[in-house]
Design a protein around this nucleic acid. Structure first.
Lengths: 144, 144
DNA sequence: GTGAGTGCAAAGGTTTTGCACCGGT
DNA sequence: ACCGGTGCAAAACCTTTGCACTCAC
């Protein structure tokens, strides 16, 4: 259960567990696998804490990112989206449906040979992000 | 020479060749392999047409993107960068040095097997973008 | 009680848009 | 001369910041 681990992290970090932060964290925990914008988190969090403001949402999301509890990724339109990190390793790989805009995850794997090649060239890889634009199976079927 | 091809495209598109557009296009042609922000294009273009405004730069860049003469890619910080398209095929693959911020190109190739796999899953791939964050060989050497 | 955290509103940064004027065809 | 293109300034958008007030510890 990742929740236990997150709670431990929070406790260890002198991080005050306010209503607002709990609401944001719960929203993210209730939306595993979703890639939410700050605005979307705000709307969902307001169901729990009606007066929560967008600034608090941003501040909380940023804090959780720096604690590596969330990932933050830049998507088209120049907007950031946040997702909860449920695994140890990064898996910054997304398939974005060009029709319904749904976002699917891809497992990291096939980039290893590319990275090895680049390391032989003298680069030291820190991270990578892959975005694939596609019709998802459903939209492909409806497209005709 | 790609310039000839671009000129043909422009002619075929009823695209008025104003001083400003020529300046923007020339800036991009003089900076093959560079990934420029609109602001950077503006500064360079003003050396040619001092009064050119940022709105014209954006409008021209967008138009050239829609003509597939330029590529537009979102980079960290939520800023778009534009680069001239010198090849037939897309090659949206970048290595960004986390130290000097220089951007290197990677040839497309090793993603084919991943794409085949996804197509078997029912996706129809439209495009993809890969960003790799790394220390470039020079910064890696200086890092120590 | 104290200081970190909050909400609001204002500011920041990038990109877009409205509008009167300009200039390529 | 026409109409698309331009420059300016304002607006739009997302995100960050300043500040007085609040509340978790």
């Amino acid at each position: 259960m990742p929740n236990k681990k997150i709670d431990e992290q929070l406790e260890a970090s002198h991080y005050r567990l306010t209503q607002q932060r709990k609401a944001v964290l719960d929203v993210m925990r209730e939306n595993i696998g979703c890639h939410l914008t700050a605005e979307e988190v705000l709307v969902k969090a307001r169901h729990k804490v009606p007066n929560i403001g967008i600034a608090t949402v941003y501040r909380t999301l940023e804090r959780l990112v720096s604690m590596q509890i969330l990932y933050k990724t830049l998507f088209d339109g120049g907007k950031y989206r946040y997702e909860i990190s449920i695994q140890e390793d990064h898996q910054h790989h997304h398939i974005i449906c060009v029709s319904c805009n749904k976002i699917f995850e891809v497992e990291e794997s096939l980039l290893n040979s590319l990275e090895h090649y680049l390391e032989q060239q003298g680069f030291e890889i820190v991270d990578h992000q892959l975005k694939i634009y596609a019709y998802c199976p459903q939209c492909k079927a409806e497209k005709v």
